[in-house]
Simulated assay, not measured.
Amino acid sequence: MTRTFTCIVCPNGCEITAEYDGARVGAITGATCPKGEDYVRQELTDPRRTIATSVPVDGGGLPLVSVRLNRPIPKKDIFRVMEAVNAVRLQAPVSIGQVVLADVCGLGADVIVTKNVPRA
């Protein structure tokens, strides 16, 4: 089977075509740099994503604070991680970089705060 990707690793946005039989990646064409080929191989064999969302803050100057993962996780685990994140409720103050959930779901990624929220 042939699959086509638009690379998102660098600003070139290469259209990359790959042969894939469900278990083995064959020829990859169209990448103008090695990063594009690596991106397509990973998308075919172990797709990963990051998550950015928000969680409630009690007693803060804002009702919510933005959070994100500090590294990509397997795409298949997104819903499981979101269940864990949706159970979080923070107390103000919160600070940028504060770890909300360490090693979320045992995947080696931390959920971290991306905005300061002072007490109200």
Rank of each mutant, 00 (worst) to 15 (best):
N12H: 05
N12E: 06
G13K: 15
G13H: 15
C14Y: 11
C14A: 08
I16A: 03
T17R: 14
T17L: 07
T17D: 09
A18T: 07
E19C: 01
E19M: 03
E19Q: 04
E19R: 03
Y20G: 01
Y20F: 15
D21E: 12
D21R: 10
G22E: 11
A23H: 15
A23C: 15
A23T: 15
A23Q: 15
A23S: 15
R24P: 03
R24H: 12
V25A: 00
V25S: 02
G26S: 13
A27V: 14
A27Q: 14
I28S: 10
I28Y: 09
I28V: 13
I28E: 09
G30R: 06
G30W: 06
A31E: 14
A31F: 06
T32H: 11
C33V: 00
C33W: 01
P34R: 05
P34W: 05
K35Q: 10
G36L: 03
G36E: 03
E37H: 10
E37T: 12
E37I: 06
E37P: 08
D38A: 15
Y39F: 15
Y39E: 09
Y39M: 06
Y39R: 05
V40F: 00
R41G: 01
R41M: 01
R41A: 01
Q42R: 07
Q42D: 04
Q42K: 05
E43M: 09
E43K: 02
E43H: 03
E43L: 03
L44V: 05
L44T: 07
L44F: 08
T45K: 00
T45E: 01
T45H: 02
D46I: 05
D46S: 14
P47C: 07
P47Q: 08
R48M: 10
T50L: 14
T50A: 15
T50F: 09
I51D: 13
I51H: 11
A52M: 14
A52E: 15
A52L: 11
A52F: 13
T53L: 10
T53E: 07
S54H: 12
V55T: 00
V55R: 09
V55Q: 09
P56V: 08
P56C: 06
P56A: 12
D58P: 03
D58Y: 11
D58T: 14
G59Q: 06
G60L: 09
G60H: 13
G60A: 11
G61V: 00
L62Q: 15
L62D: 11
L62F: 10
P63Y: 08
P63I: 02
P63D: 06
L64D: 12
L64S: 10
V65D: 07
V67T: 02
V67P: 03
R68V: 00
R68Q: 08
N70F: 11
N70H: 12
N70C: 08
